[in-house]
Write a protein that binds this DNA or RNA. Structure first.
Lengths: 206, 206
DNA sequence: CCGGATCCGGGTTGATACTG
DNA sequence: CAGTATCAACCCGGATCCGG
């Protein structure tokens, strides 16, 4: 992208992250922590491979991304990680746009990790760490209380979760957000196993 | 812009605000409250007139902007106003990028209104409203304590300010941010008139 | 002067094919 | 697996033109 050449923070930021696809690549790395080229392609349906290569070069030159060897995976630098608050802010603004699901839109289960981080809260931060396993059709996700009232979410599987939630993204997000009761969601093929108090601790008001 | 066609908040937001120039237009309206077409052009050096017209149509169709008659000025809808937190978040991320001033970059005095809103804090919210007039070379700005610890900033002139700060953007921002002492800034042709306690109340730690 | 519309060259993007 | 190469379509930038 051409620079705006304006002495203005917003304009200078957009010189770095304003290119098409760039912030979506940051999203993928925020969710996954580390990702290989082919994983990025899978998480960015529609991106032309030449653009992905261009953007990764640009993000490295800009100091937002670094690449590891063995395995050859990309990950965010601290400067890139700092974009989490920007992505969260945009995500919050976007929530009214998520009401209707357009049938031609692509979906990836791991995309729901960011809304989980953004909207879930831990009601009992002093009660010790709680771990919930989420089993979406194509992607397991681990929720873990951070002890400060926030809830961590990342792709993967935990060893001994206190509870497990299995179902479609819609049913799982419905229960976690409080839009659906557990009973309503179970009517939509959602399954819950384990300690119900952990679910009550995390889900509800949102 | 083409839609990403992804069921993801970030992607849907970028479908609306991800086009080149769009967020900078929002910046102009956040600063000015209301602006005519030619004022937008002045605040967006380098924008082609056809793109500005395109973007304004798009912003209106998307419900972020509405236009008044008599005078024919644009202003943000509540939905557009809600982008202030997004712009603030990006601005905060961008602050490390503002260290060096590139000689070819355009500058407009009113652009400094957003960093003022973002970084200034009122040390004595209970002490009643304080008003400071800022006289930048090309643009007067009014600072006003909001009573909740935040400080409002907008282009314009106040009737009876408690204090007046006159100088270049660099000197004014230096004093307000605490990067320069009043004495150091006065050596850079900054002038201060009025109640010094008001300056101390707003400036300092940032 | 204000508020655009029109036109055109060049750069960016999107889609696909190909390669070490 | 991790890209490069190619090319058409589209978007952007710069200039000019136009109606009130």
């Amino acid at each position: 992208m051409r620079s705006y050449r304006q002495y203005c923070g917003l304009a200078r930021a957009l010189d770095v992250i304003g290119d098409r696809w760039t912030l979506l690549i940051v999203r993928e790395l925020l969710i996954r922590g580390s990702a290989r080229y082919s994983e990025l392609q899978d998480g960015l349906p529609g991106i032309p491979t030449n653009l992905l290569a261009d953007r990764m070069r640009h993000l490295q030159r800009s100091g937002l991304v670094e690449r590891g060897r063995t395995p050859p995976a990309f990950r965010l630098t601290p400067r890139g990680q700092a974009l989490e608050s920007v992505v969260a802010s945009i995500g919050r603004w976007a929530s009214p746009l998520m009401g209707e699901t357009h049938p031609k839109d692509a979906v990836r289960d791991h995309w729901f990790v960011l809304p989980m981080r953004l909207y879930l809260r831990d009601d009992k931060p002093a009660a010790g760490t709680a771990v919930m396993q989420i089993e979406l059709p194509d992607q397991p996700v681990v929720l873990r209380t951070n002890g400060d009232g926030s809830v961590g979410a990342q792709p993967g599987r935990a060893a001994n979760p206190d509870a497990t939630l299995t179902g479609t993204p819609d049913a799982v997000m419905g229960v976690l957000s409080g839009r659906l009761t557990l009973r309503q969601a179970q009517a939509r093929a959602l399954r819950f196993d384990g300690d119900v108090s952990v679910l009550e601790r995390l889900a509800g008001r949102a």
